[in-house]
């Protein structure tokens, strides 16, 4: 048998796994079908855009597109910041208590997951519109949500809430209560034990919760346009361009958004890989 480099490589592959695992190979083929869908969609739009690079550059450098992407990312960040401030204590309480009310609270938190986005948008709108339960008194103070940045933020907050709270709660649940107990016997108050032991121990989950919530927030469309069509977030802009400029123009904006999101998420996922890992043998 010819021992060519190619055959040697094949032997190495077989040798490294001992023998071929047909079960895993089968699973990979079936699972691969699912990956194929976004991959094809991505390739399709990429090839289309790269065919006319000057047009793509002209779209990507439009002030409205750049402003819209920055607005979307910024509103998402504000929504995540609010979630960190209010969602973190809530997640901790849900993780550390076993009250019968927990299920009710958890169901309320999960509600945006199951609601059609238009329904979520309608709920937010009714609450924050200028005649709404919260919107009306705040309008008196000069705070307006309709067609305003704050409107975008509350819509994003509403739909992103379950992603943050559930992920962080799971992280807190994984921190043994014994760690807090020991910290307290060593002189830490309950709040200090939370800040110095629980938070750092669940940093990975908190970061993941932020990524998921931010991702969900910036991808929202229906809930946002119900309360704030203007200023246009990127989803609204793409829809606007689709109805006024056609597929070519809207897909160019979409492609810019895809590249921006891919870059940001790649960086975030790379950071997560090393965050909160305390066993260097893993």
């Amino acid at each position: 048998m010819n021992d060519t480099p190619r055959t040697r490589r094949w032997i190495e592959i077989r040798g490294s796994v001992g023998q071929l695992d047909w079960c895993l190979i089968g699973f990979s083929l079936i699972g691969g079908m699912l990956v194929l869908l976004p991959l094809l969609a991505l390739l399709n739009i990429t090839i289309g855009q790269l065919a006319d690079i000057p047009f793509l550059i002209s779209i990507a450098t439009q002030k409205q597109v750049i402003d819209s992407i920055l607005l979307t990312f910024g509103a998402g960040l504000v929504a995540v910041a609010i979630l960190i401030i209010f969602g973190t204590p809530l997640s901790y309480v849900l993780a550390r208590t076993q009250s019968r009310f927990n299920q009710v609270v958890e169901s309320l938190i999960d509600l945006p997951l199951v609601l059609p986005h238009t329904v979520a948008g309608l709920m937010v709108y009714i609450l924050f519109m200028q005649r709404g339960l919260i919107g009306a008194p705040l309008k008196e103070m000069g705070i307006v949500f309709e067609d305003a940045f704050l409107g975008i933020v509350v819509a994003m907050l509403f739909v992103a809430m379950p992603f943050y709270v559930n992920t962080v709660r799971e992280g807190f649940q994984k921190v043994p209560v014994h760690l807090e107990n020991v910290a307290r016997t060593l002189g830490a108050t309950r709040f200090q034990a939370f800040c110095l032991i629980v938070l750092p121990s669940s940093i990975r989950h908190i970061f993941n919760g932020c990524i998921l919530a931010w991702g969900r927030a910036i991808s929202e469309f229906a809930a946002v346009i119900m309360i704030a069509y203007y200023p246009m977030i990127i989803s609204t802009l793409i829809y606007y361009r689709f109805t006024t400029g056609g597929i070519k123009e809207s897909s160019a904006v979409a492609f810019v958004m895809i590249v921006a999101c891919f870059a940001v998420f790649l960086i975030l996922r790379s950071v997560t890989r090393y965050l909160g890992r305390y066993d260097d043998r893993v």
Binding site: P176, H178, V182, T185, L186, G187, I197
Partner: peptide, 16 residues
């Protein structure tokens, strides 16, 4: 507990 000066060691050692 933080005011009692009592050391506690659990079975799983509970190191931070």
């Amino acid at each position: 507990p933080e005011k009692r000066r009592i050391g506690l060691v659990y079975q799983d050692y509970s190191l931070f």
